[in-house]
Simulated assay, not measured.
Amino acid sequence: MSTTRLDQVALTGRGTHILLWAYVATSAVLAIWSIGEVVSPWPTLVGLGVLVGVGFLLMFDSAEPLHRSTALIAVIAWVAVAFLISWQLEQAGGHSQWYYGAGTVTMFFIGLRGRLGIAWVGFVAQSLVIVFWGSTTDFGTLTALLLVGKQLPILLVGTLFTVGLRRTTATIARLTEKTSNRAVVEAAQLASTDERNARLQELDAIATPLLARLVDGTPLTEADRLEFAVAEAELRDGLRARALTVPAVVSAARAARKRGVQVVLLDDRYPDVPDATTLAAITSELVEALGAATAGRVVARLLPSGRSEAATILSDSGTEQEHRVVLEPAAS
């Protein structure tokens, strides 16, 4: 599954960039402030260049999670800086070791950006350099371990925060999915209710007047029986050819049926609906065919999607040759 903005909290916004560069500026001030505590200033200046470069690298890589190559470059850069500056120190534990803190904060940020494993590898590699420095100088291994102990909580807190953040975003994603699914179900229920109400209104308009004639005891005439047959056919049209039951077709079909024409409307395209231009052309042709029919039958059929034809209209008067019209979809 690909990572989306719902799966990861984006840490690439303006606020994050401000915090990032505020820390870069703070580290730069500490480096310049303590430049007298190193044997040579050049490694410190190179470290400052790396600090700015890594800052730009992390800012411009907006991927969630952070690209693996970006994380590895940052790790390698800070390990190299630790090698470059550590043996230049004239004292331990002061601001002159700003680079160790900057490297740890960089690993903290890399972990937040979804590369927690690489962040820990980077911190351990950087810490091993510090321990190696302490064991090979007069400062001693204990001093180096104390420095590592001061930095370790930063990444531990970052790890706990990252794990909590992932759980929170996963929970938000699940809740969002449930809410979306619930909205879809509610929309479907509303649509079903609207459709049912529309059908009931149609049924009421067509059948209620006829049913009233049945219950009032008035003898039925041939005209009444024809009205019943036409009403039944119109209800059948609404079930079998919903897309064709537009007012013009309903009116033309009713008139044709009263003339004795058998009208059959079929929709094999459902639930797809023809585009407006195609449906208008089909409707116009069907109304014309129904208006011209005086006997026999008229069969109109919407064809399934994917066919080269959109619909067929068959007119059979019973005495003449059948007339068949094929309509193609409108050009897109």
Rank of each mutant, 00 (worst) to 15 (best):
Q88T: 13
A25Y: 00
G94I: 00
Q97I: 12
L89W: 09
I35V: 15
T26F: 14
L112D: 05
Y23C: 10
V52F: 07
L58M: 08
A31M: 15
W87D: 08
F108S: 08
L89F: 05
A63Y: 06
V124R: 06
T44I: 09
S34E: 09
Q126A: 15
G93D: 00
G101C: 10
A31G: 14
H17M: 14
L20E: 07
M59C: 10
L66S: 04
I35C: 07
H17S: 14
G49P: 14
G117W: 05
G94E: 05
W33G: 11
P43N: 03
G15F: 05
V124N: 01
L66D: 07
F109A: 13
A28V: 08
L45E: 09
L57A: 13
R115T: 01
L57G: 10
V54M: 07
I73N: 00
Q97F: 08
L20K: 09
D61Y: 08
G122P: 01
G15Q: 03
S34K: 09
L20H: 15
I73A: 08
P43C: 00
V124C: 08
W120E: 06
L84Q: 10
F56D: 05
V24E: 01
G93F: 00
I118K: 06
T70M: 07
L116M: 14
I118D: 01
T26L: 15
L45Y: 13
S34R: 11
L84Y: 10
L45R: 04
V81H: 00
W42T: 15
L58A: 04
F123D: 06
T44L: 11
L30V: 15
G117P: 02
M107H: 03
E64L: 14
R113I: 11
A80Y: 04
V38W: 10
G55R: 08
H67F: 01
M59T: 08
R115Y: 01
S96E: 15
P65Q: 11
L51K: 03
I76C: 09
V39S: 09
H17D: 14
V38D: 06
Y99F: 15
V121Y: 07
F108H: 06
T104H: 03
S96T: 12
L45Q: 05
V54Y: 02
G94Q: 07
S96G: 14
R113V: 04
T106I: 07
F123H: 11
Y99R: 02
L51Y: 01
E37W: 14
G101N: 02
H95V: 03
L19R: 12
G103P: 12
V54E: 09
D61Q: 10
V50A: 09
T44Q: 11
Y100T: 08
A63N: 13
Y99E: 12
L57Q: 02
S69A: 14
G114R: 07
F123P: 07
I73T: 11
L57I: 04
G94L: 06
W87P: 03
P65H: 03
G55I: 00
L89Y: 02
A74P: 02
R115C: 03
S27E: 12
W21M: 10
G114N: 03
Y99S: 08
Y99T: 01
G93H: 02
F109L: 13
T104I: 13
W42F: 14
V24D: 05
W33I: 07
